[in-house]
Design a protein around this nucleic acid. Structure first.
Lengths: 224, 224
DNA sequence: GCGCATCTCCACCTTTTGGGGGAGGTCAGA
DNA sequence: TCTGACCTCCCCCAAAAGGTGGAGATGCGC
């Protein structure tokens, strides 16, 4: 039995969703809440499997509440954002907060039920248009450095290693140490790769490394 | 009327999907193809609205074919990848190729029909698990530079602008020109921001800018 | 008004970087 | 075998970068 919690500041909307879901044999509305604060408390108290969360609410909005509930971690629930609007800003904040779904309130009841089941099974459900935008963004990032990757192929193995080290923020001396070669050799490699890639200095080399995918955001701890 | 093309090397599978779709009053299977090469030709000849594309095929695989068809551009069709497997590699290549959907062959017939309609309307449809993974990846990138963004707040407006320019690969002289200030001033700002962010040189500053989201991949043309 | 942060610029200095050119060694392929 | 591509390291030099300290101007809030 799937235990669902519905969070919306409008009682009528809340009851509507609750009725739709309660109508399903395997779904049970275990709790309701009218704002973010209540939602956090209710989530703690009732430990639902799925939370349907509105965004616009008094006291605390749904995105903030989602972030806090999922941050707490002791609840293993998953959140579906259910809203009338879908500006990018909301979507990104929602995904970052950890939501597993983002659907618009104008969807047919069956789709809502389907979304709940999908998310409960470990999947995610986004409104089709949002999925589309997410894909576009993703494809853009993935495809960004194709022609740049060609330039990359002109480099020798060693030069590539040096470039990677540069993209790590290392100085020539540090690179030398890391690669077990002399500083002079590093300089040679750096000069060579800069010229091959038609770059002026190591700062541009770092940009190049990120743009062509040699370095990617989030794979390093920026402690330096 | 939605004109659909089905591409799969197994005739039985192909006919099965075609029958399911033809059964819908508003959908018509306009063409079929058994491999990537045929698919490209058939897409050219029949100009379908939607292409259901298998990945594993002789001659040319579905991802390659998708890329070529969408690259051609004169076709305004949209592609749904339909496969038995879903390794990340396939998914990323598919999205990069420009696919608007990625669903598994084990979905129920109604879901397939729904996917076709959704994509035809400009949306995108991914298998729930894939949506989930896409979201995770996205959230990771988005959330990567949170603690870094804090450090960013220590900077003044001007320092931020200089940092952005550094992340653009500009030299101090170029920054001076771009911001209409003297080179000496740029040096002051650079020194200040490096010290505030606890960085050593501009190369590390570039890394920092990318990691904290001040600069993002794909938003610049790397011509330098 | 006063303090404070910010933006602007200067001079002086050291370190790093990048370019040019050279040179020895290895190793694969013609 | 010899050529060519790599990797390694050297010297010298000029340019850029980065650090330190100082200074005038502005504007904002107490």
């Amino acid at each position: 039995m799937l235990r669902v919690m519905v969070v919306d500041d409008q009682a009528l909307v809340r009851r509507g969703f609750a009725l739709i879901l309660d109508n399903e044999p395997d779904i049970q509305v275990a709790a309701e809440a009218a704002n973010g604060i209540e939602a956090i408390e209710a989530a703690q108290a009732h430990q639902p499997d799925i939370i349907l969360m509105d965004i616009r609410m008094p006291e605390m909005d749904g995105l903030e509440a989602t972030a806090r509930i999922l941050e707490a971690g002791d609840a293993t629930c998953r959140v579906i954002i259910l809203t009338t609007f879908d500006p990018d800003e909301y979507v990104f904040r929602a995904l970052r907060a950890g939501a597993s779904g983002f659907v618009l309130k104008d969807i047919p009841p069956e789709a809502l039920v389907e979304a709940v089941r999908t998310v409960a099974e470990g999947g995610a459900m986004l409104a089709p248009g949002i999925t589309q935008r997410l894909i576009s963004q993703f494809a853009q990032k993935l495809g960004a450095g194709r022609n740049l990757a060609e330039r990359l192929e002109r480099l020798t193995t060693r030069e590539c290693e040096v470039l990677k080290a540069i993209a790590d923020g290392k100085s020539n001396a540090e690179i030398a140490e890391a690669l077990f070669i002399g500083p002079a050799t590093v300089k040679t490699h750096v000069s060579s790769l800069l010229s091959k890639l038609e770059l002026r200095d190591r700062a541009q080399a770092v940009v190049f490394a990120y743009e062509c995918g040699l370095a990617t955001v989030g794979e390093r701890d920026v402690g330096f």
